[in-house]
């Protein structure tokens, strides 16, 4: 806009400048506001509190030392039935010394699983099978399948080791223990994933690392 085109009135110049700037600023503000719904539409609609799904799992076919996996909220969930040997191994002092977070200090589990076996009942372990390093799915090392296998998990991607309670080994690249989902036992063989009777306020979005 060249000066020669400005109307000659003396105060008109100032007024138009204010008008011009105001209009342009307001127009830009409108354009920015228009971008909001577009960005909004990209939000994950599943990430709202309503979408905490409940999944009931029948455990009657799970024998001691076995594990199974189910899908919950698109995550693999490992359920293992522990043998007395596995439970003993979880408490062995020289094993505990090799762990990064043996006492589950980092919030990776509901309150009712913040214990030495990281589960509601010692006999059953329930873990979200997503490696806390970069998200691969670790595989179960069935006790006795190899001489070292004690029922822990091994992540093939960068070699992180987790014990049967999902606690990460100190030597591993993964920073945290495997997450534990909120669960409730409806009966001795019926497990509900998605709600924790012992920690009702718990939500997966509280987890530190998943």
């Amino acid at each position: 806009m060249t000066q020669s085109e400005t109307p000659p009135s003396s105060d008109g110049t100032r007024r138009r400048d204010l008008l011009a700037t105001g209009t342009v600023v307001l127009g830009c503000a409108g354009a920015c506001a228009l971008a909001v719904p577009f960005v909004e539409s990209l939000k994950n609609p599943v990430a709202n509190p309503l979408s905490d799904r409940l999944l009931d799992v029948d455990l009657s076919s799970l024998t001691p030392g076995q594990d199974m996996s189910v899908r919950w909220r698109d995550w693999p969930v490992f359920i293992q039935r522990r043998t007395p040997q596995m439970l003993a191994a979880l408490q062995a002092p020289d094993h505990l010394a090799t762990l990064r977070d043996a006492d589950s200090k980092v919030l990776q589990q509901p309150k009712d699983a913040t214990n030495w076996h990281r589960s509601v009942r010692p006999e059953y372990g329930v873990l979200i099978g997503v490696c806390t390093h970069l998200g691969c799915v670790p595989s179960f090392e069935k006790p006795g399948s190899t001489p070292e296998a004690k029922g822990g998990y091994f992540c093939p991607c960068h070699g992180s080791h987790f014990d049967a309670a999902g606690r990460v080994a100190r030597r591993a690249p993964a920073p945290c223990n495997l997450p534990v989902p909120p669960v409730t036992f409806l009966s001795d063989t019926k497990l509900r994933i998605g709600h924790s009777a012992g920690d009702p306020g718990f939500s997966m979005s509280d987890i530190q690392q998943i």
Binding site: E5, R16, G22, L26
Partner: peptide, 14 residues
Amino acid sequence: ALMAFLTFLLQRRI
């Protein structure tokens, strides 16, 4: 409507 008002004033001046 506000923008229309402002742009109307602006173009009339110009």
